[in-house]
Design a protein around this nucleic acid. Structure first.
Length: 646
RNA sequence: GCCGGUGUAGCUCAGUUGGCCAGAGCAGCUGAUUUGUAAUCAGCUGGUCGGGGGUUCGAAUCCCUCCACCGGCUCCA
């Protein structure tokens, strides 16, 4: 008998050689029906594998990430089987599970595969799933595996196989389909109850644009039909929060083909919102010892040659701006740091002056690839809430921690509870794209990791995500559709100070090199507004709302009283508008609700006589009759609750 | 940039076996109504059917090309 330790700590005695599914059965039939995979000593494997030694076991179901990914991975195989049925001879590349479902990259050769073909594949998958075909695992010697796929004429699998180590290669088969696969898989196809193929898209083989482009088919499956329906419903709801849709509806921003792709136009309401966010941060930064600076939108090519950006990005950026002098070239500024370095250099600096913190809402222009533009989250002209901190090497960690405080304060104030802190380091393999000495990189990496640890941030490391001049700490949040975006970023940089030969005089009366910290708590105003918009579904906090209340006279007879309270509320610093259209009150309320105005003040005969207003709150309804002072107190309290979070 | 899809009024959308002056709702304008917590009624205005080229007696509809947008891929200082 072997000892199996379950997640609750209990130990179960089991016979060697029984399957994990059988262990599940011995616990309960219900559990057994739901088990998708087994996690044995931390490794996720088939529930049909057998018990060989004492172990820690947890049985994974739909509720576990490992369970989900196993079902989806198996679904990818099921889809591949259906595809081979209709398109014999297609070449399959890879078919993994992803955050929301799975995909398979397929080389369709001469077939043409269209979106409308998804339905018939889906139907075939449903048919195959009902056949209850078991997933069978088989260890295959490398040469045999290669021979199999050479015979099948699949160059992608052969290429994958050639990189694998002999003795660790497994095939999985179900029905008429066999695939090279590490696993794990569900016991049989009948576990896949609800199937939806979502979309097709192009994807390069191995993610390299030099390689052939394959057709990627995305799908998602569930162990229950109702879960699929719920998922599709959630997708619909998410679409309603899409910042591109809300931005248009709430008249925050727009794009114009004439102005140019990826160049947002901020409408009055959007501009006001943005101004409030900027002022909020300016105030926070002023307290933290930052100084505002202003730099121009273009700069001489020499600036970027010096910074290294020209060499790195010159080819892909907006082309140079020429002048009557043939020896001159200017560039639209793609980042603010080189300018700030020159501000630092404008006078000699003493260690007593450091840290120097220069902040600027600097608008920058980058020629992003056309296919990459996306609403406000990816644009060609945007404003960074940028600042550069110049400090001594000894001050780096402390300064870095202070910046983390600001970022956390900003996220907390705007009610972002879900975010990830990503430590972005160099790629392990390819170091050619980075500049600067090994020694400086290591110093910078350590500073970030230590600061993050001391601030007790929960972090994860992403290799290959560093900037070319240094590592970063990036704050990532998800948008309505689950896409991840980088918002705030903090970067330690030893390179630019060197390139610009920045110096300060130390206590020893010698010249020293300062260290730079680049940081932007919002990231960019554009992206932040986009993510904020989706996060709050357009219901902005009161302190950010341009129109905090709309005054709704019951009829035109009360317009003059509306004017009166509007001016009184303005004296109380409350931002209002009067809806004096010749419409019924129901219509005015409906329009105010749809435009997501936090408060509505309904005034008629009674209110005019009593010098009161009837207050209605967005999404909540009637709060009753009150005086303007009472109303203003409510607003003050709401704003207090929104802002005082530290 | 690459693959696939989409493009009709300010917005949401109808209209393709090629054929009457291209339609609807909302928004806007004008008038009537003077209204009590999510859409008052009537009339009117508004469209180079994304741009350009072609096929045809005839194109929103078919073909070519360019542009923009959407979903991905690659990229992201």
């Amino acid at each position: 008998m072997l000892k199996v330790t379950l997640p609750d700590g209990s130990i179960k005695e089991c016979e060697k050689g029984i399957t994990f599914l059988e262990i599940a059965k011995s616990i309960s039939e219900g559990l057994a029906r739901n088990v998708l995979a087994a996690q044995v000593d931390g490794e996720v494997i088939d529930s049909m594998r057998t018990l060989e030694k004492d172990c820690q076991l947890s049985l994974l179901t739909w509720k576990d990430e490992g369970g989900k990914s196993t079902l989806w991975h198996s679904s990818a195989h099921l889809m591949a089987e259906a595809l081979e049925f209709y398109y014999p001879g297609i070449k399959l590349a890879i078919g993994p599970s992803v955050t929301n479902g799975f995909y398979y990259d397929v080389d369709f050769m001469d077939y043409s595969f269209k979106e409308e073909d998804l339905v018939k594949i889906e139907e075939k998958m449903k048919e195959l799933s009902k056949q209850k075909n078991p997933f069978q695992r088989r260890v295959v010697p490398k040469n045999e595996a290669i021979a199999y796929f050479k015979e099948k004429n699949d160059p992608y699998k052969v290429e994958l196989l050639e990189e694998l180590e002999d003795g660790h290669i497994t095939f999985y088969s179900q029905g008429n389909f066999t695939d090279l696969c590490r696993g794990p898989h569900i016991p049989d196809t009948s576990y896949i109850k609800a199937i939806k193929l979502m979309s097709i898209a192009g994807a390069y083989w191995r993610g390299d644009e030099k390689n052939k482009q394959l057709t990627r088919i995305y799908g998602i499956t569930f162990p229950k039909q109702s879960e699929l329906e719920e998922y599709l419903h959630r997708l619909e709801e998410a679409k309603k929060r899409d910042h591109r849709k809300l931005g248009k509806e709430l008249e925050l921003f727009t794009f114009s083909q004439k102005v140019g792709q990826g160049l947002p136009l901020w409408l009055p309401k959007g501009a006001e919102l943005r101004e409030r966010l900027e002022n909020f941060l300016k105030k926070t930064q002023k307290k933290a010892g930052y100084q505002q600076v202003i730099t121009p939108h273009i700069a001489n090519k020499e600036l970027y040659v010096c910074s290294g950006h020209y060499e790195k990005y010159g080819e892909d950026s907006f082309k140079a701006i020429l002048t009557p002098d043939p020896n001159e070239e200017f560039y639209l500024k793609p980042m603010n740091c080189p300018h700030h370095c020159e501000i630092y250099k404008s006078k000699p600096r003493s260690y007593k002056d450091l840290p120097a913190r220069f902040a600027e809402f600097g608008t920058v222009y980058r020629y992003e690839q056309s296919g990459e533009l996306h609403g406000l989250t990816r644009v060609r002209g945007f404003t960074q809430d940028d600042a550069h901190i110049f400090c001594t090497p000894e001050q780096v960690k402390e300064e870095f921690k202070k910046v983390i405080d600001i970022v956390l304060y900003v996220l907390k104030t705007l009610d972002f509870k879900q975010f990830k802190a990503q430590i972005s380091l160099r790629s392990k393999e390819d170091r050619s794209k980075y500049i600067g000495s090994e020694e400086n990189w290591i110093k910078a990496e350590n500073a970030i990791i230590e600061a993050a640890n001391e601030k007790e941030l929960s972090t994860f490391i992403a290799y290959g995500e560093a900037a070319f001049y240094g590592p970063k700490l990036d704050f990532m949040v998800q948008d309505a559709l689950g896409r991840e975006w980088q918002l705030g970023t903090i970067q330690v940089d030893y390179n630019l100070p060197e390139r610009f030969e920045l110096e300060y005089i130390g206590a020893d009366n010698q010249k020293h090199r300062p260290v730079m910290i680049h940081r932007a708590p919002f990231g960019s105003m554009e992206r932040f507004v986009a993510v904020l918009l989706e996060h709050c579904a357009g219901d902005f906090p009161l302190w950010l709302s341009s129109e905090q209340a709309v005054i709704l006279p019951i009829s035109e007879k009360f317009n003059s009283y509306a004017e009166e309270i509007s001016s009184q509320l303005a004296d109380l610093d409350i931002r209002t508008r009067i809806d004096d259209r010749n419409e019924k009150i129901g219509k005015k309320i409906r329009d105010a609700e749809l435009s997501k105005i936090p408060f509505m003040l309904i005034i008629g005969e009674k209110e005019m006589n009593e010098k009161t207003c009837s207050v209605r709150q967005r999404h909540k309804g009637d709060l009753g009759n009150m005086t303007l002072i009472q109303f203003s107190d409510i607003l003050k309290e709401v704003v207090q609750n929104e802002l005082v979070k530290l």
